[in-house]
Simulated assay, not measured.
Amino acid sequence: MTLLILGLILWSLAHFYKRLMPAHRAKLGDKGKGPIAIALIIALLLMIFGYRWAEFIPVWSPPAFFTHINNLLMLIALFVFGMSATTGRLRGKMRHPQLVAVKIWAIAHLMVNGDLASIILFGGMLVWAVASVILINRSEEWVRPEAGDAKKDKLLVIITVVSFVVITVIHALLGVSPFGG
């Protein structure tokens, strides 16, 4: 669990650095991107291995039907995440689509994972996403981008479904069945 918690802390600090110490970050310029990227990669590795190696400590038993809700929420999370990159009509409908997607992802995973390591990982990422939205909203004005072509939204739907299938296959290869069982 220690690696998992250290990973969450490093992930949060690396992301919050720009917001909490903007003058210091600005002094680093483009040279500061490398160390932050390295810190984020290390954080991801700590979280992945910390989660995989954590002892399974059951806290609660999710009902089986939550699996279906989780899968629906994951489709929504992928779609919302993709809204950050779309140039379609949906561009600009939401200020923080990636962070909203992380919140949906975290809640979906909290619904179907009742062990302590899952609660720490997904709960920690949920707290990070909420705090990130608050920090960003306090630190910068948002200029809503203009809506684009509706055809790009159709492409987003296709990319969402393909991404869901790929993620499902990866989960299955890791020994985790996204459909229960």
Rank of each mutant, 00 (worst) to 15 (best):
M1W: 12
M1S: 14
L3N: 14
L3W: 13
L4W: 02
L6D: 14
G7H: 11
L8A: 13
I9N: 00
W11V: 09
W11S: 06
A14W: 08
A14N: 06
H15T: 05
H15G: 08
F16K: 07
K18C: 00
L20D: 10
A23E: 12
H24T: 12
R25P: 00
A26R: 09
A26N: 09
K27E: 13
D30C: 00
K33V: 10
G34E: 07
P35K: 02
I41V: 15
I41Y: 05
I41P: 01
I42G: 00
M47D: 01
I48Q: 02
R52T: 05
W53Y: 10
W53F: 10
E55H: 06
I57K: 03
W60P: 00
P62H: 09
P63C: 04
A64Y: 10
A64M: 05
F65R: 08
F66M: 13
F66Y: 12
N71L: 12
L73I: 06
L73T: 07
V80F: 06
G82I: 01
S84R: 02
A85T: 14
A85D: 10
T86I: 02
R89K: 15
R95N: 05
P97F: 02
Q98T: 14
Q98E: 07
V100H: 03
A101V: 04
A101M: 03
K103F: 04
I104P: 04
A106T: 06
I107E: 00
A108D: 03
V112E: 06
D115L: 07
L116Q: 06
A117V: 07
S118N: 12
L121K: 11
F122V: 06
G123F: 08
L126K: 02
V127T: 08
W128F: 15
A129M: 03
A129Y: 02
S132A: 14
L135Y: 10
S139H: 13
E141C: 05
W142V: 01
P145T: 05
A147Y: 01
A147E: 11
G148P: 08
D149S: 12
D153S: 05
K154M: 13
L155V: 09
V157R: 06
I159M: 14
T160G: 13
V161K: 03
V161L: 15
S163R: 03
V165G: 06
V165E: 02
V165W: 05
I167M: 14
I167C: 10
H171Y: 13
A172K: 15
G175Y: 05
V176M: 11
V176T: 14
S177C: 12
G180M: 02
